[in-house]
Amino acid sequence: MVDQANAARAAQLEGGGMSKPEASTILVNGLPCRVWAKGEGAPLGYLPGIGGLPRWTPFLDQLAATRRVIAPSLPGFPGGIGHDHLDTHFDWLLATHDLLTAAGLAGADVIASSVSGALAADAAGVWPLLIKRLVLIAPFGLFDASDPPTDIWAQRPGHLNGLLCNDTQTYKDFVAQPDSVDAIEWKVEQMRAQETSARFLFPLGNTGLAKRLRRITCSTLLLWGERDRVMPFTYAERFASGIAGKSEIVKIATAGHLAELDAPTSAADAVLTFLQ
């Protein structure tokens, strides 16, 4: 059933200037997780931010012009189930490892945005050969009480959408229900995705990553929207100073927390420049 839904979703992505990605399914802990892939070239992984990846995006399309972009869905994000089997950070870390490996991304370059950044950063530190080069877009994982991130789980109805992108309409379009998808199931999928982030990050978004940052030895790009209303820019500096490998910070103008949605061209250019 999940496979059929994922194939149907992929089919809906034609139009709007984008062709559809290829859809396949892998198993994590024996449960199905969708993989979308597109393009030719060296594999480049993408783990999406809050809310997961309900539809293919212009950012991924631009990367797919020169790379084979592979976007596996974490358990609980759209296209994947099984988040409720994962209780501890260790469970989530293993699931991230298994997901990347099963999707054919072992040893590849990986982009991880927002909440997924906390998992990818830890995975890079724990398994140094798993990720070749890492791009983190405003990642979670650290917490400083004197400069806390916005509490994304304590928002009035409808407010979160306005926080995630610089242009609210951009996020609304990203999560808008396609006509052919069942309204109730779409809503449930969105709520499940929100729950998934909470399951591995509630209440502070602090996974204890601070004491493991030094294990990250791969080159890392820290990409930050200049108008991020969720994760303060000071966290870019915290990540950069803690990571043992070479790191650099790039700010994206007129972009919010999910910078790759607000400014797909600038974000894709920054990523491809870093990965050259």
């Binding site: 304590a154 009035r156 407010h159 309204a183 449930v188 709520m191 729950e195 982030s197």
Partner: peptide, 25 residues
């Protein structure tokens, strides 16, 4: 009570979300 404290994601089960969305419709 500020509505920001009312529904943290995951508090409601999927069955309850389905029932509520149906009821709202």
């Amino acid at each position: 009570v500020d509505p920001r404290w009312v529904v943290p994601p995951g508090y409601m089960t999927e069955a309850t979300i389905r029932a509520r969305v149906e009821s709202q419709m």
